[in-house]
Amino acid sequence: MTYFFGKKTEQLFIWLFFPLALLLPLFLEQNEFYVNKLTSVVIFAIFVMSLDYLVGRCGMITLGHSMFYGLGGYLFILIAPEFEAVNFWVYTFYICVLAAAIALVVGVIVLRTSGVYMIMITLAIAQMCFYFFSDSVEFGGNDGLFILMKPDTSLFGLAFFNLDDPLHFYYFCLLSLFNCLVFWKLVTGSRFGRIMEAVKDNPQRTTALGYNVFLFRLLSYVMASALAAYAGYLFALQYGFVNPSMMSWQTSGSALVMSILGGMGSLYGAILGTVVYEGLHYSLEHLTEHWLLLMGCLIIAMVMLFKAGIAGFLENLLERRK
C-alpha cells in the first residue's frame, strides 16, 4: 500500500474517501434519488480520471475526450441486440476494445499535432461526432435513444449484482472507480509510465534517447479513451438512455475543470475534483438559477489563485513540514 499510493495525502484521501463512500448510502437508503446522484458522480470520476491521466501525466491537452464518453453509450446501442439482454461483462469488453480501436485511428490523426493544435483538433473531431449523432435519425437525434434491455450481469453462472438495484449499481461503480485508480497507478509506476513522463517533460530528448515518442503517446491516448468509453457505458446503463449531449464540448470542458480543480495529474485528485465540482454544482443550482455565473467566477478565481488544485493544496498543508 505504501509502495502504491506514495504520498501521505494520497493515502489519507483513499482511506477516508472509499470507506466513507461505502458507508454513505446506508444513511440514504430510503432515498433512491441521492444514491443515483452519488452513482453518477462516481461514474463521472472514472471519466475525469482518464482525462487527468492524459492531460496531467502525458501532457496531451484534449478538449474532445467526451467523444469517447458518448461513444461508450452509443456503441452499446449499436452492437447490442435491441430486445435481448446481453452479458454485461462480454459487452464491457467489446465496448472497451471498440473504443480503443476508434481511438487508435483518431489518435493517429490527432497526435500528428501537439499543443494548441491538439486542443483545437480534438475539439473539432468531437464536435463532428456530436453533430453526427445529433443529426442522425437512426440514433434519435438530439433526444438520443433508450436502452430497452439492460444487460445481464452474471459471470460463470453467478449473478453478482442486480443492475436495476441502484444500490448494487452504486457499489459496482465505486469498485470500478477504485480499480481504475489502481490501474492508472500501475501504469504511471511502470516502465511505460517512466518513459511516458519523460515524453511529457522533454519529447525531443526522449526521441534522442531512442524512444518512439509517437507510440507512447498513442498507447496512452488509446488507454484513456477506452476507460472514458467504459465510464460512458456505465452512464448509459444507469440512466437507460444515451444522448448527444454526453459528447458535447461542455462535458469535456467541465471534466477538465474538475481535473484541474482536484490537482492535475494527481489521479486521486480527479475524484476530489469531481466530488467538489458536482457538490458545488448541486448546491449552487439550488441556491440560484444562475449557478453558471458563480461557477464561472469560481473557475476564474481558481486559475488565478489556486494553481495546484485541491490535491496540491492539501499536500502542501500536510507534507510541508519535513
Binding site: L186, V187, G189, S190, R191, F192, G193, R194, I195, Y211, L215, F216, L219, M223
Partner: peptide, 11 residues
Amino acid sequence: GSFNILLSKNS
C-alpha cells in the same frame, strides 16, 4: 519492457 504498463519501473 518500455511498453509494459504493468511492470514496475523499479523492478
